[in-house]
């Protein structure tokens, strides 16, 4: 397996220099390292610049609905638990219009890898404030500066029940690859929030500004310690990158499977029994 076999013939529609190119490089390398056959992988996305991801991968692709990638992925996982599902989207898709779904995907601990390309702006619609935009941030929809404080994706993920939470930086594809591989190996809801600059509509949160605030997670950090993870996740100055939180908890698919009654008989015989028992 090599990274190029996971790339489709479609040329990415992103602007030159977009952070999402780094994510694409990291993902294809991670898929190669996992050695997953393309026919066993489904890329699911919502709508937005980063949600064009499935077009650029040579796997099954599902470019779904704005904000709805998580429930779509749940439907897919339950229908085909043998297929690996990787979800792609942006901060607006995942935490504004899709915020409600995100919480429930995390608390259910659905076994998916969710990659957020977090650029603090709406890019596809040409530059409006997003749920991760900073207070006072000026955009076309906040010409006098945003009056809303941002939400923190990794904090929300940890508190909602996600079992693998990492933060990465698009300027470090090699580091991203490692975070993705670890998230793909993890059984459960794995969120990787990638600081991925929009070079066209966000002149504040740039490769340079992100790089200045990035700090490596201390080597002695206990990833199973929720309080320690939250302390790092919510640091007001620095973006700690790496794996913030990682625990094991039963996944949703296994709980659903455990409810199912099994029988050696044909399902039609079982239907007759079940129907007649209630008549």
């Amino acid at each position: 397996m090599n990274a190029s076999m996971y790339k489709s013939a479609v040329k990415p529609t992103w602007c030159p220099g977009c952070g999402d190119f780094g994510v694409l490089a990291g993902i294809t390398q991670a898929l190669a390292e996992m050695g997953w056959e393309p026919e066993n992988v489904v890329a699911v996305s919502g709508i937005g610049c980063s949600s064009r991801f499935p077009f650029f991968l040579s796997t099954y692709g599902f470019h779904s609905i704005h904000g709805r990638a998580v429930p779509v992925a749940i439907g897919m996982r339950i229908a085909r638990p043998d297929l690996k599902v990787v979800v792609f989207g942006g901060d607006g898709d995942g935490f504004a219009i899709g915020g409600g779904h995100f919480l429930h995907g995390a608390r259910r601990n659905v076994d998916v890898t969710y990659v957020i390309m977090d650029n603090h702006i709406y890019g596809l619609t040409k530059g409006q404030t997003s749920p991760t935009s900073d207070l006072k941030f000026k955009t076309k929809s906040t010409p006098y500066g945003s009056v809303e404080p941002p939400i923190n994706p990794v904090q929300i993920a940890i508190c909602s029940g996600a079992t693998y939470v990492a933060r990465g930086f698009a300027g470090d594809p090699k580091g991203l690859k490692d975070l993705f591989v670890r998230g793909m190996r993890h059984k459960g809801f794995a969120l990787i929030d990638v600081l991925s600059p929009c070079v066209t509509y966000n002149r504040v949160d740039t490769f340079k500004s992100f790089k200045e605030r990035i700090a490596a997670i201390p080597a002695d950090h206990d990833r199973a310690d929720l309080s320690a993870a939250l302390t790092l996740a919510t640091d007001p100055e620095r973006f700690f990158t790496g794996v913030l939180f990682e625990i094991q908890r039963p996944v949703f698919e296994d709980r659903v499977e455990a409810l199912k009654g099994y029988s050696d008989r044909s399902w039609i015989e079982v239907v007759e029994d079940v129907f007649d028992s209630m008549s």
Partner: peptide
């Protein structure tokens, strides 16, 4: 569940139709 199939109460009507969307694609 008695028949080895799946029922899920979604977080919203929108969640439910999108789970249908995902399952239909499978």
């Amino acid at each position: 569940p008695l028949l080895g199939r799946t029922f899920l109460q979604a977080e919203s009507e929108i969640g439910a139709i999108n789970m249908v969307y995902g399952a239909a694609s499978a």
